[in-house]
Design a protein around this nucleic acid. Structure first.
Lengths: 292, 292
DNA sequence: TAAAAATACTCCATAGGTATTTTAT
DNA sequence: ATAAAATACCTATGGAGTATTTTTA
């Protein structure tokens, strides 16, 4: 069986004539006759009682026409679905971000995306790196925004921006009065507040602290950057914060730059190597880069 | 697009592998790959993100799979419908009969049909000849039982039986005492009760009466053979009745045979020349002939 | 007789096959 | 290194064409 044959059958049903049906289907009458005969032999049953004067559908033929019409409707629906996605920027994009980026990056880009690509429907997810990568590979996400990884995953990456880490300290701390950048060595011997396990920022901060001679403050583990900052504000300690998260003016916190070589992390947009949304994602990456 | 391609697509979706899908579909892997690529270019959109390790359907691909499954279900349904009609004696037969035959013939054949062809579903219609022929040609009826026509219709005929016409007279009529056949000439000068217009038996009886010198009794026109017989029983007159209708023993009526050449009518089973049910109808005709 | 479907054939597009290469983990 | 999909190329089925015949009202 064959979708074209079903079109022929329905055309004959509607026009009550093989020749007219052939015209409508833009094929010759013998072609249409032949295909319908094949359809009948394929099914092992007659669908049409033919004579040169009158076309009469068998009861089976009429039943088949009902099914055929439904099939043709569904086929058209498939074509419609495919048509809709002709614009590469149209359709759904499921974007994941790590929690230490999402709340600070999204306000900068979501309005612009809505403005520039109104056809795009953006679905946002905030998850830690390992979950993001799993969902990306499973196809649940189209792209993820995260800090560049050391491990090689089968994913394509587009660099978005590099953000420095700043020192967040209580404004009452003697260091807070410094207007210029501080050296990493100011961390030496300090206890630093950290995020809970699973956040990549925690790993990055731990690395910095290790090389600077600082230790993790074992008494607390924050579940979010916001919590961490509140703890700093109440004088509970000090911590390392990515640049983007320092833009809010928070009571009681002073952000200090580190002098070169300042610790930093590379933020990337990652996708599956063979993602069908690559064209859209590349444009999205450009928009994000330009927004920082 | 192509039904086979949709099978390929669904197979890949279910088995998560091109090669396994190809096996299930009994084609080679390159064939299946090629067809799916064609399907995609035909639709102008990607359905599957391919890599040598992982198969991932795009959101469009998943939507198409949903539609494709429904289409394949309907295609199977068409095949099922066709399968069901493999037995020529199975399925519906819509049979029409003229009113002067139906009530007398049906009791003789319906039980036998039910016994011999339990797969057959018989639908019965009682209509006058012209309506029977119209409905036959329109396809509403598969076959009709009627008296042989003089006019040539584009229909095929199978003779069923020939039935003589008998004289029905009141038992109180002097003629009723005759045990032997009577000559047609006994009708000479009599008024004969007739069915209303449209019944072919009326036309046949009128013909007989005309050549025998009898006239129609203008005072009554019966709507059915039963009514006609009741009128004869009450002494209202005499009439001509087909053989089959004389089998009931009715109070007050005597049926007399005519001596040769006795008037008669040929009962036939008629169908469209190219009827797809011809094989079944031929068997049905044999059964009817044998039942008389 | 005339209109419409069926038949007979030819052609070529394409579904399908085999052998091989490329790709990605 | 290996498993799986893609590519290259060949074959053959069958969908479509033209010319003609058959059918039937």
């Amino acid at each position: 069986m064959n979708i074209r044959d079903l079109q022929y059958l329905v055309a004959v049903y509607e026009l009550n004539s093989f020749s007219k049906a052939a015209q409508r289907c833009y094929v010759s009458q013998p072609t249409l006759s032949g295909q319908l005969k094949k359809l009948e032999t394929g099914l092992g049953a007659r669908l049409i009682e033919r004579s040169t004067r009158k076309i009469l559908f068998t009861r089976l033929g009429e039943k088949v026409v009902v099914q055929a019409r439904e099939i043709l409707r569904l086929v058209d629906h498939i074509k419609d679905l495919a048509q809709e996605t002709d614009d590469p920027m149209a359709g759904d994009i499921h974007l994941g971000l790590i929690p230490t980026i999402g709340p600070f990056l999204l306000p900068k880009i979501v309005p612009k995306i809505g403005e520039r690509y109104p056809q795009m429907k953006l679905f946002l997810y905030e998850l830690q790196t390992d979950k993001l990568i799993r969902k990306l590979l499973e196809g649940e996400l189209d792209a993820i925004v995260l800090a560049k990884l050391d491990w090689a995953y089968p994913i394509g990456e587009i660099p978005l921006y590099t953000e420095k880490l700043k020192l967040a300290i209580s404004s009452s701390d003697p260091l807070a009065s410094r207007k210029r950048a501080v050296k990493l060595s100011v961390l030496d011997g300090r206890s630093v507040l950290m995020l809970e396990d699973g956040h990549c920022l925690r790993d990055q901060a731990m690395g910095v602290c290790f090389s600077a001679g600082a230790k993790e403050d074992q008494r607390f583990q924050a579940t979010s950057l916001d919590t961490l900052l509140h703890m700093v504000a109440t004088g509970a300690g000090t911590t390392l914060v990515p640049e983007l998260a320092c833009e809010k003016n928070l009571e009681g916190i002073t952000f200090l730059n580190f002098s070169a070589p300042a610790p930093s992390r590379d933020i990337i947009l990652a996708m599956r190597n063979n993602s069908v949304r690559k064209p859209a994602l590349e444009q999205l990456a450009t928009l994000i880069s330009n927004s920082i």
